[in-house]
Simulated scan of single mutants.
Amino acid sequence: MSRRDQIRMTPDEVQAYFAEQKVINVASIGPKGRPHLAPLWYYPHEGGVATWTYGSSQKAKNLRRLAEATVLVESGESYEQLCGVSFEATVELIDDTPVVTQMGITLMQRYSGAEPGARPAPELEAFVAGQAPKRVGLIFRPTKLTSWDHRKLAGVY
């Protein structure tokens, strides 16, 4: 078995990794054809990830022009700890304010440590409802995925 095969994550491992990490790096194509890279908070969604951003942001403008991106989630401080998932994705942009509001609530709950699906505090709902009209939801659906988990090598290279 090749080293590549040894470090590849299973689909379940990829989903567990998405659930434990906190930041994605999203590469979209800017107006001059160059990559535009931006970090974002996210939550796992339907085999990929979802997030929101300001509708006026460069990444939103780029994704409206070309609804495709490359997404990277990675961790590890040394070679034997390196883990990550990189995937090419189609991107669905959501402009429906009630849906964007729910996406924002899901994000805020995840990063505040709230139980998924728990009833949000009224203050959180009010804050997100005020932000949602300025935001666009982004759903990244993987079309090609590569993963690695060097911890599977158990220190043997």
Rank of each mutant, 00 (worst) to 15 (best):
M1Q: 13
M1R: 14
S2F: 11
S2N: 14
S2D: 10
R4Y: 12
Q6I: 04
R8Q: 09
R8A: 12
T10V: 04
T10F: 09
T10Q: 06
P11Y: 10
D12S: 13
D12T: 03
E13N: 04
Y17H: 02
E20H: 06
Q21Y: 12
K22F: 10
N25R: 14
S28P: 10
I29A: 07
K32V: 12
G33K: 02
R34S: 02
P35Q: 07
L37A: 05
L37I: 08
L37D: 10
A38C: 11
Y43W: 06
Y43C: 11
P44V: 08
H45Y: 15
G47H: 04
G48Q: 04
G48I: 01
V49H: 03
A50F: 03
A50D: 07
T51W: 06
W52C: 08
W52Y: 07
S56M: 15
S56G: 10
Q58C: 14
K59I: 05
K61F: 07
K61P: 01
N62P: 06
R64F: 03
R64M: 14
R65W: 01
A69F: 04
V71R: 01
V71D: 08
L72D: 13
V73S: 15
E74Y: 14
S75E: 02
G76E: 00
S78W: 07
E80H: 15
Q81M: 15
L82D: 11
C83W: 00
G84V: 07
G84H: 07
G84T: 06
V85S: 10
S86Q: 08
F87K: 08
F87A: 13
A89Y: 11
T90S: 13
V91W: 00
V91P: 00
I94A: 04
D95H: 14
D95I: 02
D95M: 07
D96C: 06
P98G: 05
P98Q: 01
V99R: 12
T101I: 01
T101M: 01
Q102I: 02
M103T: 02
I105T: 13
I105M: 03
T106N: 03
T106A: 12
L107K: 05
L107F: 06
Q109R: 07
Q109C: 15
R110Y: 04
Y111S: 15
S112D: 02
A114L: 11
A114Y: 03
E115R: 08
P116H: 08
G117L: 05
G117S: 12
G117W: 14
R119V: 11
P122H: 05
E123L: 05
L124M: 15
L124W: 08
E125F: 12
A126T: 10
F127T: 09
F127C: 06
F127Y: 04
F127H: 09
F127A: 04
F127R: 02
V128G: 00
G130W: 00
Q131P: 00
A132K: 01
A132R: 00
P133I: 00
I139F: 09
F140I: 12
T143V: 13
T143P: 01
K144W: 04
L145I: 08
T146Y: 15
T146D: 05
W148P: 01
W148K: 13
W148Y: 13
W148N: 05
D149L: 00
D149W: 00
D149M: 01
H150N: 15
G155W: 12
V156T: 14
Y157P: 09
Y157Q: 04
